[in-house]
């Protein structure tokens, strides 16, 4: 395959960026999108140019490192991560636009790499359960109903890639935050911190400069792990419940 690429190039966070055009040849339809970028970078290095910086790690669709907006879609046209997107999703001769996540809370570090540590700080604010260390507890000591376990697992699938923020016209992190609030809030292990978790995570989310939710549904459409939109409504419910409880105590 022969492709025209238009890639966002930006030296660092303070520099001005622009789209740069590249031609790549000899692309196999079985290559992943990242392998196609590797091919481009090898050529750039041979030519003595600066290779395109992009985040990647496991390349198995489970780590949440890759973060490309491809033709305006977070992670491209398929519902998966950029690393699991294959070139067979494109046609020979296509022009493909590659851009970084766009959000005030995700500043560009270089080219296609953005700083997503705002997500880490949201998790630090309450996305955990406090458990005593020591020997592993008896597995049946804390029964979890099947429906709750399924609900928790569905939300535990979030890999924190940030596609929801990138897709949202408001740069909102509601879907990401709601994934963790739903995941831990429904489990007995998460019950002791149920109220403080949602209040602190939402407070941190707002403090990081993410936008609010206008229920456009773009986040859930972009999510490679299929975190559903109703999770946001569930988090709103949790937040209002926690506020009521906080008001009483």
């Amino acid at each position: 395959m022969r492709l025209n690429l238009r890639v966002w190039r930006q030296k660092n966070g303070d520099a001005e960026g622009a789209m740069a055009t590249y031609r790549v040849d000899g692309i196999s339809p079985d290559m992943s999108f990242l392998e196609m970028l590797d091919t481009l970078n090898e050529e750039l290095i041979l030519r003595g140019e600066d290779p395109v910086a992009f985040d990647h790690d496991c390349r198995e669709g489970i780590c949440g490192a890759c973060s490309l907006v491809i033709n305006g879609d977070a992670h491209g046209p398929e519902r998966t991560t950029s690393c699991q997107l294959h070139m067979r999703s494109f046609r020979d001769g296509d022009t493909i636009d590659v851009e970084p996540w766009r959000a005030a809370a995700f500043p560009v570090v270089k080219d296609l790499v953005v700083d997503r540590s705002a997500f880490d700080r949201i998790i630090q604010a309450g996305g955990y359960v406090s458990v005593p260390t020591g020997s592993a507890p008896e597995a049946h000591a804390t029964p979890v109903p099947k429906a709750d376990a399924d609900h928790a697992f569905e939300h535990a699938e979030c890999i924190g890639c940030g596609a929801c923020v990138a897709a949202c016209p408001n740069g909102s992190a509601m879907l990401f935050t709601s994934a963790k609030v739903n995941h831990l809030g429904v489990l007995p292990q998460g019950a002791p911190e149920r109220e403080s978790r949602v209040l602190d995570m939402v407070a941190q989310m707002d403090a990081e400069g993410f936008g609010g939710c206008t229920l456009t549904g773009e986040c859930a459409t972009a999510c490679p792990k299929g975190i559903p939109l109703p999770s946001i409504a569930a988090m709103n419910k949790e937040w209002l419940r926690a506020r009521r409880k906080a008001g009483r105590s």
């Binding site: 907006v69 033709n71 959000a103 809370a105 408001n170 400069g209």
Partner: peptide
């Protein structure tokens, strides 16, 4: 919300 998304994507797509 506008402040949270200061840079638009070059490749525009049909939104909501």
């Amino acid at each position: 919300d506008i402040k949270a998304r200061p840079t638009a994507y070059v490749h525009r797509r049909k939104g909501a």
